[in-house]
């Protein structure tokens, strides 16, 4: 294919109580898109910020969901919009990620075919053990996180989209597992192409430990979704992908130990964590408390 003929690309960004940094992030990739669907999950929107976002460019389509319907539902909304406008590829973004230059947009469309379900921009230089060589710039991988991915909308439709009842955590894992279950490929850039802020960096210096170790600290409610959804996935893919089940179960135990040993407000975090386990046992999904 002539490298000059790029594939048309739509994008969607999911907002939830965004800050000004969302605008800077959007600007890092807006030029490479035909259209950007801004899906706002915020209940009480910041009118001023929304206006600023709308004024960024005429290619922005703003959709207010009215209530927080979760990440999965928001991406599905964006994907349905893009598909109805005949796009085959959709960039999915969260409000905390931005791109480092244009490399991703210059290269994602080379060497791909209809069996590629998702192409991710890496936000780390490190390769994990799952990766294997695919092309000069991309590796094949088992999982990608929800932000900074270009998804194949034909396959999105074919595999039934993102699992809305999971609401937030593990939505990305579920989608990747589904893709791979049907034999589709997930690619990731070999180079670090984006910056992604996950949760808040929590500095444990005040404990007086020798090493100043920072780690990611989500809001307590997220631990409800993490425990519930990880268990759901472990159940769902128990027979199709046992490797994954082992890994995620280990991760869950690790998280629990981490809360017990390192977290502030342990009681709050633990109560959400166990509520998640309880709702998994009761098969209660969707939004917390609904």
């Amino acid at each position: 294919m002539d490298p000059g003929n790029k594939k048309p690309l739509a994008g969607c960004i999911i907002l939830y109580n965004p800050t000004d940094s969302a605008i800077k992030n959007i600007e890092s990739y807006l030029d490479f898109l035909n259209v950007l669907y801004v899906i706002d999950n915020t209940e009480c929107v910041d009118e001023k910020l929304v206006k600023e976002i709308k004024l960024l460019d005429s290619k922005i389509v703003y959709v207010h969901q009215g209530e927080n319907k979760g990440v999965a539902s928001a991406i599905n909304t964006g994907a349905a919009l893009a598909l109805s406008s005949n796009y085959q590829w959709l960039l999915t973004m969260d409000q905390d990620s931005n791109f480092l230059g244009s490399d991703f947009f210059d290269s994602w469309h080379t060497n791909i075919n209809d069996t590629v379900g998702l192409i991710a921009a890496s936000y780390t230089d490190k390769y994990d053990r799952w990766q294997k060589d695919y092309s000069e710039l991309y590796n094949e991988i088992h999982f990608a996180v929800t932000s900074g991915n270009i998804i194949n909308l034909k396959l999105w439709e074919a595999i039934g989209g993102f699992e809305e009842k999971l609401f937030i955590d593990e939505v990305d894992h579920d989608y990747c597992l589904k893709l791979r279950k049907y034999g589709f490929k997930i690619l990731i850039s070999k180079k670090k192409l984006m910056k992604h802020m996950v949760g808040e960096l929590y500095d444990r210096l005040e404990n007086g430990s020798a090493k100043s170790k920072t780690f990611i600290l989500h809001s307590p409610l997220r631990y409800y979704y993490i425990s519930r959804n990880v268990l759901y996935l472990c159940k769902k893919y128990f027979f199709t992908d046992f490797d994954f089940v082992i890994c995620r179960f280990y991760y869950l135990i690790k998280t629990l130990v981490k809360i017990l040993l390192k977290y502030p407000d342990k009681v709050v975090y633990l109560s959400f964590f166990f509520e998640g386990i309880k709702d998994f046992a009761l098969s209660k999904y969707n939004k917390h408390g609904h």
């Binding site: 003929n5 048309p8 035909n34 290619k59 406008s85």
Partner: peptide, 16 residues
Amino acid sequence: IKKQIDSIFAQSILPG
């Protein structure tokens, strides 16, 4: 012709 086609592929909604 390339400019014409490219401008169609750059539309905010694409034709079928």
